[in-house]
Design a protein around this nucleic acid. Structure first.
Lengths: 357, 357
DNA sequence: ATTAGCACTCATTCTCCCTGAGTGCTAAAT
DNA sequence: ATTTAGCACTCAGGGAGAATGAGTGCTAAT
């Protein structure tokens, strides 16, 4: 059987009505809104064909039709219209992003929150881990005789600090020395290399000096570790409850728990095929059991020259794909514009590389 | 009518059975478990009395009894038995807290998560704002010719840094100068005082120098602002869904939204009367509308010498108060032991005052 | 003072029936 | 050869009663 143009238009109408109403769609409803001047009987025939072809499904004999995964897929790939953002929405997004140049993760968090609000679905964000982060430089600042601040800057311009406290006293010259050693021997190394370097140092250093060094290096290693780990956050989980498919708590609970558990959420499909910067996974296309009846729309954005972040929306398969993709891609573009290219973004108050996590 | 000892024992039994079952409690059930050898008829009489006195309520004529707010109050104040933590539980708590000496807010976050898990209720945490935080010292670290790192340390030992970027070039001596100015004129001031000082400086400084100063001071002000703001987090909201009172979504939604919205949550009753370090608010004792049918159990813990944090559990009025208070007070004590007294906690890797928020 | 017994109440559950949206098929109309 | 009107049929969802049973309050006996 051939998928005529008219069939496509009908399929599109079914998907859109279903997205709007969450109820199986009958032939009459399609006849009214599809815009094609055709009687419901004809549409019934066409819909029967579409069902046979696998694009539609029937929950039970006397009910309307519901798009199948295949139907959604076709809709997303070919039929979906461009959705325009209203002025109000772009305004809202821009407000959220421009508010103030803050730390990267805060901006993303806020972006996620706004995205979740305007889309009414939960949102997850993930900064794709950077493979080889290294420390670019160390600074040590004396505070009291037995405490100092270690400032560590990585090659992706993240700066972190920690107040370190010692049992023994430390003098200013000692700190100078320490700083020299760190900046010569523990710079440009990956996490593993640092570990090795530290081990080696242990054997051929005075124990006192080594304690100091190891204190700072350990902190540096924590920082690198943090940078290397996939850090997935989910926001706005409660939006799920607003959608009829989750009015049954037994449906909602597993998914909510899945999203709420951070370690679980980290299994979200936060990777994108090479080159792709937008991806839609529909229902069973998700590998994970908990996401069986759930669609995930995600987009990537650039951070600096060689990092990528992923931001995505999670919702029922009956999700307003057009709306969501429009918003999502606008977000991703905006974020890329903010963080992509050139080490760090411009901004009145300068930039902040700290506390990225 | 007098509240005899027997009446109290019956009330206690009713509360505990109701806590366990979430169903109105009948005389028969009480007779079985109360341990007093008394027939259900007698208990019926006593329960009738308790109802008249206001400690119990009857949802409808032919239903069992449910504790009233007054009943819970009495239970919590007088009748509630000590609940012992199992070895396993203390172990779990200790694991969570001792894992590694990290930043304060992470430890608290983790503590909250575990508390939420072992109590099955949402948890909120709040570091009570410190009134007068001031900057103790500034450090500036040159990075490139048009970028430097500002490190700000407050008098409550919080250290924050930010990478600042400039349109103009800055020289090392210039930075030195800047640092001197900052450390002499912008130290020991509160947020408002700093604003004033900055205004004054503007009139009588060279514009170029002022831009630099204002950049750093603005950052310092952000840090102070962050310290001064009540920062409430909520964790484990989804646990609500596990309790029968929220199986009706219309009940669950407002509360979940209330807890999820951070600005809303900040209105949580996170204050404790002077001297108190544990407080229970039962149902209507909560001022807030959204918490009308909800109880809040909270405890405070010390951070350093002059800060207090609050950690609390939110749940239905039918909440296992004994269990929750036991866990909560153990947590609060542990946290106090970790962070209380003496500026910062001991720990193998030293301590961290950074990123406290 | 306590308890057994009994009539009564009422939320909950189940059953059965009805309604109406929607279908598929057939026959007429274009 | 399509398209459409008409009609019989299906079946989920909803509402009305009836049955159930947990629980009560009261009375009379212990």
């Amino acid at each position: 059987m051939e998928l005529t143009n008219r069939k496509k238009r009908i399929l599109r109408a079914v998907v859109e009505i279903y997205i709007a109403t969450a109820e199986p769609v009958g032939s009459k409803a399609v006849a009214q809104q599809a815009g094609l001047d055709i009687s419901s009987a004809t549409i019934r025939n066409e819909m029967a064909d579409l069902t046979e072809m696998g694009y539609l499904e029937q929950p039970h004999t006397s009910a309307g039709r519901v798009p199948s995964t295949m139907g959604y897929r076709l809709y997303v790939n070919e039929l979906m219209g461009e959705h325009r953002l209203t002025m109000q929405e772009t305004q809202r997004i821009n407000d959220a992003l421009n508010l103030k140049m803050e730390e990267l993760d805060r901006v993303i968090d806020r972006a996620g929150k706004v995205l979740s609000q305007i889309s009414d679905y939960p949102v997850f964000t993930a900064a794709a881990p950077k493979k080889r982060v290294t420390v670019k430089r160390y600074d040590l600042l004396m505070v009291e005789e037995n405490a100092f601040i270690a400032v560590v800057m990585t090659d992706n311009s993240v700066v972190k600090n920690k107040l370190l406290r010692m049992p023994d006293q430390v003098s200013d010259p000692q700190l100078q020395m320490l700083s020299t050693v760190l900046n010569s021997s523990f710079v440009g190394l990956t996490l593993e290399e640092m570990e090795d370097a530290l081990d080696q140092m242990e054997t051929r250093s005075a124990p006192g000096a080594f304690r100091l060094i190891s204190l700072v290096v350990q902190f540096a290693m924590e920082v690198l570790n943090e940078q290397a780990s996939q850090n997935v956050h989910t926001l706005g989980i409660t939006h799920l409850l607003e959608h009829p498919e989750y009015k049954n708590l037994d449906k909602a609970k597993p998914l909510m728990n899945y999203l709420a558990e951070e370690n679980e959420a980290s299994k979200l499909p936060v990777t994108l095929e090479n080159g792709q910067n937008m991806n839609i996974l529909i229902g069973p296309e998700n590998v994970n059991e908990a996401l069986k009846d759930t669609s995930v729309v995600m987009a990537s954005y650039d951070i600096g020259d060689n990092m990528r972040g992923v931001i995505g929306v999670v919702g029922p398969t009956r999700m307003d794909y057009a709306k969501v993709t429009a918003r999502l891609s606008y977000f991703a573009d905006s974020l890329t514009r903010m963080f992509g290219k050139g080490e760090l973004p411009p901004g009145d108050a300068g930039e902040d590389g700290s506390e990225k996590d």
